[in-house]
Amino acid sequence: MELLRNIADNYYYMVAVVLFVIGMYTMLTHSNMIKKVIAMNIMDTSVFLLFVSVGYLSGGRAPIVDEGLSAAAYANPLPGALMLTGIVVAVSVTAYALSLVVKIYRYYGTCDYDEITDIRSRE
């Protein structure tokens, strides 16, 4: 029972972990390169979610400092700020990965790793 309550209380962690595993699984097993890139994004997003949820304070205010409120009343701004950086990084990696996929597509006419392996083994 306690386990269930724990899970229910921390459902956002669970969601993040499930997303992470989905992303990682797809990334490693799918042969389509576009799907790999998408999976990479899912994986990154799951971590961003987790991070942001760590900083969230239920009922807390946005961290714009007002007179008279104690620090405990604000949500932690640091994870949010960090995740902004993280998102920027993830976007650039995605852009780079997609550009690679385009170039590979020009050579082979396909985005599928297995087909590429086939083409190469036939040569």
């Binding site: 990334m27 490693l28 990479m40 994986m43 990154d44 990696v93 780079y96 690679l100």
Partner: peptide
């Protein structure tokens, strides 16, 4: 390399 590296980063 990029994909595995991204997995590592994740």
């Amino acid at each position: 390399y990029l994909i595995l590296s991204a997995m590592g980063t994740g």
